[in-house]
Design a protein around this nucleic acid. Sequence first.
DNA 1: CTTTGTGCAAATTCTTTGCACCAAA
DNA 2: TTTGGTGCAAAGAATTTGCACAAAG
Lengths: 135, 135
Amino acid sequence: MKSTQEYLIAHDIKPSVQRLGIMEYLLSHRTHPTADEVYWDLQPSIPTLSKTTVYNTMKLFVEQGVAIQIDIDERNARFDGVVEAHAHFYCKKCGCIIDLPLPQISWMMSETYGFTVDETCVNLKGICEECKKKS
Amino acid sequence: MKSTQEYLIAHDIKPSVQRLGIMEYLLSHRTHPTADEVYWDLQPSIPTLSKTTVYNTMKLFVEQGVAIQIDIDERNARFDGVVEAHAHFYCKKCGCIIDLPLPQISWMMSETYGFTVDETCVNLKGICEECKKKS
DNA sequence: CTTTGTGCAAATTCTTTGCACCAAA
DNA sequence: TTTGGTGCAAAGAATTTGCACAAAG
């Protein structure tokens, strides 16, 4: 079990209080947060944190392959520290985003169609089980 | 072969010059255009067209199920008049978006996981064949 | 020192809203 | 008329940029 610090270094990211905080946040809160959510949640523990830094860091993380940007929410960019290909289910009622394991399929698409696929994002939208129970 | 006008009416959309123009644009240009692209391409033939109307119309189309909004481009909302579930491949080099037929898989996810899925968008990102040839 | 990261404030960009005018039934 | 569609201008919201200061080696 590598430390977050070693994990960042292994991906050519120089650790800083902010970067470590954000990476740990992503890894422990698998909520696909927006930059804003990350900012407000970390701001108490890193008082000088700015949104610019959150954006800068997210961009760096995506470039270095330790995070992915999820375009399931048309309003905000959302980020995920889980970089392995998986599907996201967005509930149109409560707004939750649920991770789903992905049958080993669409990656074969790259072989079938001859593309080089390096990011995969399956976005499903609908109503989640919880919300279905409530109605 | 239904006319665009009948198609709109069948989906409870009252036809207007603008709506017909935009729908026909979507059906004939399968380029997953942004609102801006639709606006500038149609503006010569519909001189009074406004971006507000493009946005209004797109929203209506999505609500009525004759278009989908694609969140593959973090910068702009893109729209597609092909509403059947299919995958999109985004080339990180040239920016093109290619439609891919979708093996009948992920829809089974709804049955597997018990969600009601009413929108599906598989987003793959990488380098397309054309760009691979050029490098 | 020198390089790199951080963060404020301002600027940009995309999208939505408020509201008045227009058009069709 | 009355209802609904359109479009201008302004507002709103998310993200980016410019730049100066701070931190680390």
